[in-house]
Nucleic acid binder design. Structure first.
Length: 275
DNA sequence: CGATTCCCCTGATAGC
DNA sequence: TGCTATCAGGGGAATC
């Protein structure tokens, strides 16, 4: 499931291959993935533009195009963006293809059809409903221990629910939240305003560490995720709790437990992460 | 404000 | 073997 490290890895792989190329045509096989504008307008607005640079905001990938437009893409659960040769076998569930002026193409494939694309003027990126309400970038300067401390104190919700809230911190998802909580030795159902200063420090560092490790290992390929070259990541081999129910905790060897928190499967060590 | 549930959707898996 | 029910989950909407 593409979270911040996976989207960052996709961005970097596409950046390397696609920067400077022009879009010569667009194929849309499933128009509902195009949220804005309409499918025909989307095609004509993209065709002829060149790819100038890439960016990321939370779990959103940004492709900045010539003429002041940005293509905003969310991969949700099973979305893939892969740079391919038109001769390569076309995967099932390929919904959008951007033809490029070097004879290759960028394919958007998404089994569950949850992923979305939006084309908007770059200058109005900040007002786009998808991006407008996103919280801080956890790997940028604006994410400080002091910010986290004040926000945690203010919120009366469970820690896991808060960390998953994209309007609070942008980019964390189920995998990295569970990993960060384990690393910080905090129970996912702890109330956000119950953390003492040392615990705040622990979760602050843990969030950044798991995200950086995730990026350094090119993301977690738990099921569907691959980068822009179609390569899997490696972080699934380093996960300590996520999807490891019954496996021994790397710290204490007690079996990892699984519960539901805010409707999400939540993995934790009942010994290291006491309520 | 927060918690819960439903929805979108396909494919893997469990249970019978 | 083959069928069906359940589950997985990001995010948005609706409801309490």
């Amino acid at each position: 499931m593409p979270e911040l490290p996976e989207v960052e890895t996709v961005m970097r792989s596409l950046q390397k291959n696609l920067t400077g190329l022009a879009i010569t045509g667009v194929t849309i096989n499933l128009s509902k993935v195009i949220r804005l504008p309409g499918a025909e307008e989307f095609k004509s607005a993209l065709t002829g533009r060149s790819i100038e640079s890439f960016g990321r905001r939370g779990k959103y990938l940004l492709i900045h195009l010539s003429g002041g437009y940005t293509l905003v893409i969310h991969l949700r659960m099973t979305g893939r963006l892969v740079y391919a040769d038109p001769g390569d076998e076309l995967p099932r569930h390929t919904h959008v293809i951007l033809q490029l002026d070097n004879g290759r193409e960028l394919r958007f494939t998404d089994i569950r059809q949850f992923g979305r694309m939006i084309l908007i003027p770059t200058e109005s990126l900040g007002e786009a409903p998808e991006l407008r309400d996103l919280g801080r970038e956890p790997l940028e300067k604006g994410f400080t221990r002091d910010f986290l401390r004040k926000e945690l104190r203010r919120r009366r919700t469970r820690l896991k629910a808060l960390l998953l809230d994209q309007t609070f911190i942008a980019g964390l998802g189920n995998i990295y939240v569970d990993e960060a909580l384990h690393r910080a030795r905090l129970h996912p159902e702890r109330l956000a305003n119950s953390l003492n200063p040392r615990e705040v420090t622990r979760i602050f560092h843990a969030i950044q560490e798991v995200l950086e490790e995730g990026i350094n290992n090119r993301g977690t390929s738990f099921r569907d995720y691959v980068d822009g070259d179609g390569r899997s990541g490696n972080y699934q081999e380093l996960l300590r709790v996520y999807s490891r129910e019954g496996h021994p905790c790397p710290n204490c060897r007690k079996p990892i437990n699984r519960i539901k928190v805010s409707g999400r499967s939540t993995y934790f060590c009942p010994c290291c992460q006491k309520p």
